[in-house]
Each structure stands twice: as structure tokens, then as C-alpha cells.
């Protein structure tokens, strides 16, 4: 029982990550893929932040009379990761716009059909 209480946070975070990954690999719509990627990355942030938690501590902002603080390092790392995630999203969406211009669709199966026809035409 104590095992489950000590780890349930991680298990839900894993569920969240896998939900995002599922959307990425199961959908054929490019925008939904990007949304899934976002959920996947946002959930990894939770994994790190969960690790940094210390029972009975406060946020790592020093005040008189407090001894225990949360670990600042996971926060630092995830600040970087958030920005990296948004940067990737931006590039992915810009590509989606261009693909829509070139193919007139953002559905993977319709794009594949057109590419197949292009392949046969040489």
C-alpha cells in the first residue's frame, strides 16, 4: 500500500506521457500530431518537477527561518525544456502551413496518395 502511495504520482505522469505519444503515432492529421507532441513534452516536465519535490519544503526562495526547500535543479532544467518544446512546435506548425500550401491538405493519407501519384509520374 505504501508503495502505491509513494509512486502513484509517477504512474499518472507516465499515463499522461503515453497518452500524448499515442496521439502522435495514431493520428493522421498533422496538427493533431503536433498537439500530441506538446502533451508528450509537457508531461515530461511533470516527471522532472515531481522528482524535485521534498516533503514539508517550500519553493526555493530563501527566507529567514526556513531550512528545507524544494530542489531548484529540476525547475531550472525544465525552464529550458519548455522553451525547447515551444520552439519545436513553432517549426512543426510552420511546416504544416507549407505542406498545406503544397498539397492542399494536412491529412497524412491524402498526402501519401498524392506522393504516390507523383512517384508513378516520375
Amino acid at each position: 500500500m505504501s508503495e502505491a502511495l509513494g509512486l502513484y504520482n509517477y504512474w499518472i505522469v507516465i499515463f499522461l506521457m503515453m497518452t500524448g505519444l499515442y496521439l502522435v503515432i495514431s493520428t493522421g492529421n498533422l496538427v493533431r500530431k503536433v498537439v500530441g507532441l506538446n502533451i508528450f513534452q509537457a508531461s515530461v516536465l511533470l516527471l522532472y518537477v515531481t522528482m524535485g519535490r521534498v516533503d514539508g519544503a517550500t519553493a526555493p526562495i530563501f527566507v529567514e527561518g526556513r531550512e528545507t526547500y524544494t530542489d531548484p535543479l529540476p525547475s531550472v532544467l525544465m525552464l529550458t525544456a519548455i522553451v525547447v518544446g515551444v520552439a519545436t512546435t513553432a517549426v512543426a506548425l510552420a511546416l504544416t502551413v507549407r505542406i498545406n500550401e503544397a498539397y492542399g491538405t494536412i491529412e497524412e493519407d491524402e498526402i501519401n496518395e498524392q506522393e504516390h501519384a507523383q512517384e508513378l509520374a516520375g
Binding site: 518537477v49 515531481t50 524535485g52 519535490r53 525547475s75 519548455i82 522553451v83 518544446g85 515551444v86 506548425l93
Partner: peptide, 25 residues
């Protein structure tokens, strides 16, 4: 979880900017 710095950044950048990017697309 007492990580206010990441929380604010995620609220502003993750919830704000990313959503706007997707809607703009």
C-alpha cells in the same frame, strides 16, 4: 509541487504561446 518558476513559464509559454501558434496555424 512548489515549483513556481516552471509553473509561471508553463502557464505563459506552454498554455499561452503554444495554443496561439496552433490556433494561428
Amino acid at each position: 509541487l512548489d515549483a513556481p518558476d516552471v509553473a509561471f513559464t508553463e502557464a505563459a509559454v506552454g498554455a499561452g504561446v503554444s495554443t496561439i501558434f496552433v490556433l494561428a496555424t
